[in-house]
């Protein structure tokens, strides 16, 4: 019914949309959101693969991704707040001090 090709295509499309967002946005918050989309794309792939093989490992992996996403968001948003406090902007191009 749902072919693997379609599913793969969906997942990859979602992932590439995330990549596109990461490339195109300069706002740190939007970059984090893009990363969330990419994580979701991978999660879909895992769950789908698990159900193909009638195996619960895929969902366990999904659980792990969930944990990872939660941690990442917590730290990432902390950074966003800190950056906003320092530069009063979320433009990542202003964070090029490490270059000098």
């Amino acid at each position: 019914m749902i072919s693997a090709e379609q599913l793969l295509f969906f997942s990859l499309t979602l992932f590439v949309i995330g990549v596109f967002g990461l490339l195109v946005r300069r706002n740190l918050l939007f970059m984090l959101i893009s990363i969330e989309i990419m994580l979701n794309a991978v999660a879909v792939l895992f769950v789908a693969a698990g159900s193909y093989h009638h195996n619960s490992d895929g969902q366990i992996m999904y659980l792990l991704i969930l944990t990872l996403a939660a941690s990442e968001v917590a730290v990432g948003l902390g950074l966003v707040i800190q950056m906003y406090r320092r530069t009063l902007s979320l433009d990542v191009d202003q964070l090029s001090k490490m270059h000098e």
């Binding site: 749902i2 693997a4 090709e5 793969l8 789908a48 159900s51 009638h54 619960s56």
Partner: peptide
């Protein structure tokens, strides 16, 4: 990934994990 994807059969969605 298309060669691998073509091999995989359609899943049985009634099996619930």
């Amino acid at each position: 990934l298309s060669p691998q994807a073509a091999v995989i059969i359609t899943p049985d969605t009634r099996v619930v994990i």
